[in-house]
Design a binder for these strands. Structure first.
Lengths: 210, 210
DNA sequence: CTTTGTGAATTCGTTCACAGCA
DNA sequence: TGCTGTGAACGAATTCACAAAG
C-alpha cells in the first residue's frame, strides 16, 4: 500500500464534510473543479487526492456525491468501530463533551474521567463519567483505543504516560503543552494559543493558505 | 524576503513554547539535538528552522534559551500588537474565553459577541461582551484585526462575511464547517470531529507523525 | 466539447554532510 | 573535539499536460 500523506488525509476529511453538506442540500453530482473551489484547492489536487480512495467519477457527470462520500468513509473509518474517552472535564473538556454528539458512527464516545469527585455525576448523552483513579481499569475493560486529553498542563504528561501503559493507541492533546509519547502511539496536539499566534503572523505576512 | 512555510511557523511556535518552559525551569542553554528531541524533530530540521529567525547559537554552548525565545518572538509577534474578538459564547466560545488569559502580550482579547441578550453580562477578565448587532461597529472602532469564530455552523458563513466587510484581517474558524473567505484574509479552521476521524485513521495505519 | 485519471515535470520541504568555529 | 550554519542532494507533494471517455 502506498504512503498516504497527512495532508491528503486532512483534505479527504474536508471533502467528506463538504459532500455531506451537498447531500443535505440535495446535490447529486459534482466536478473536481467545483469541489476544489468549495474546499480551497486546485482541481488537480482534488483528483489526485481522490485517487487514493478508489472511487471513479465520469467525465460527463463528475463524481456522484453520495457514492464519493461513502468511498471516503470506507477509506477513513474503522469498520470495527473505535471507542474514545475524554480525560478532564474542565471548561474545555465539558464543552467537548457537550459539543461532541458524534456525527460519525464509527467512533463512539462512551466514557469520561475527572479527578474532581464533584464532576462525577450521572451520564451525559450515554457517556459515563468515572474518577481518574479508574483510568487504567476502564480503558482496558472497555477496550478504549483513543483519548482526548483536556487536563491542565501540569498533569498532561503523567496522564499521557498512564494512557500509554493502559494500552491506548491514539491521543489528541488539548492541554497546550507539547508531550512526548512513544513512537507507536498516534499523537495529535492542538493548542488555541498557538493558532492565535500563527494567524497573527499570517495576517502580517500575507502567506495565504487555505 | 524568502518564503517561510506554514510548517516552519508551526514548529517555531512549538519551539517557543518549549523554550518558555525551559526558562521557567531555569535552563540557560540548549543544543539543537536536545530541542529536536523535546519537539519531535531532527536536529537538522531545528537548525534549518532557526535560520529564519536570525539568531545564532555557538558551537560550545548551543543556543541561549532566553535569547532564542525572544528572537522567535520578534519574528512571530506583531510589534504593534493586535486585537482579537471572540464571536459566539456557546460552550466552546465560553471555554475559550475562560481558557484564554493570553500569555503573549502582543495579542489582546478585548471583546466578545453573542446574539443572546442573556450572555451580555459584565466584563470577564477585561473582556467586554457586546450584542452581535454591534459587530461591524465595534470591529471598526476598536480596530480589531483577528476573530475567533465559535458560532453554530448555520451562522458561520454569514458572520464570516460580516467580519470581512468590517475589515477583519484574520479568522480562526471553530464552527466545524468549511467556510469560503476572500484570498486576502488569513484563514484557519479547526474542527474537533475532523481530528477524531484523523486520529482514528492514523491508529489503524501507523503512519506515525510528530 | 468537457472532464477524468495519471505519468512526467516541477516546486517545495527535509536530510545529508561538511566547512568553520569556539 | 562537538557543535552550528548551510550548500547540495534527496525525497515528498503539487501542478502540468494530455490520452481516454462519454
Amino acid at each position: 500500500m502506498k504512503k498516504i500523506s497527512e495532508k491528503t488525509i486532512n483534505r479527504l476529511i474536508t471533502y467528506r464534510q463538504i459532500l455531506n453538506r451537498l447531500i443535505y442540500d440535495g446535490v447529486e453530482s459534482i466536478f473536481s473543479h467545483k469541489l476544489a473551489e468549495l474546499s480551497g484547492n486546485t482541481p488537480a489536487q482534488v483528483r489526485r487526492d481522490l485517487m487514493v480512495v478508489g472511487y471513479n467519477g465520469t467525465p460527463v457527470k463528475g463524481y456522484r456525491v453520495d457514492e464519493l462520500e461513502k468511498s471516503i468513509g470506507y477509506f477513513i473509518d474503522d469498520p470495527e468501530g473505535q471507542k474514545i474517552a475524554i480525560i478532564g472535564l474542565g471548561n474545555l473538556g465539558t464543552s467537548l463533551l457537550n459539543y461532541c454528539y458524534w456525527r460519525y458512527p464509527n467512533i463512539s464516545l462512551l466514557v469520561a474521567f475527572d479527578k474532581d469527585k464533584d464532576k462525577i455525576r450521572e451520564d451525559i448523552y450515554d457517556c459515563h463519567i468515572y474518577h481518574i483513579n479508574l483510568l487504567e481499569q476502564v480503558v482496558k475493560e472497555e477496550e478504549i483505543t483513543l483519548a482526548i486529553l483536556s487536563v491542565p498542563p501540569a498533569e498532561a504528561q503523567s496522564i499521557a504516560d498512564r494512557l500509554v501503559n493502559a494500552g491506548i493507541k491514539g491521543i489528541i492533546n488539548y492541554s497546550s503543552l507539547h508531550l512526548n509519547v512513544p513512537g507507536h502511539i498516534s499523537y495529535e496536539e492542538y493548542d488555541m494559543l498557538s493558532s492565535v499566534q500563527k494567524i497573527g503572523y499570517l495576517t502580517r505576512n500575507k502567506l495565504n493558505l487555505d
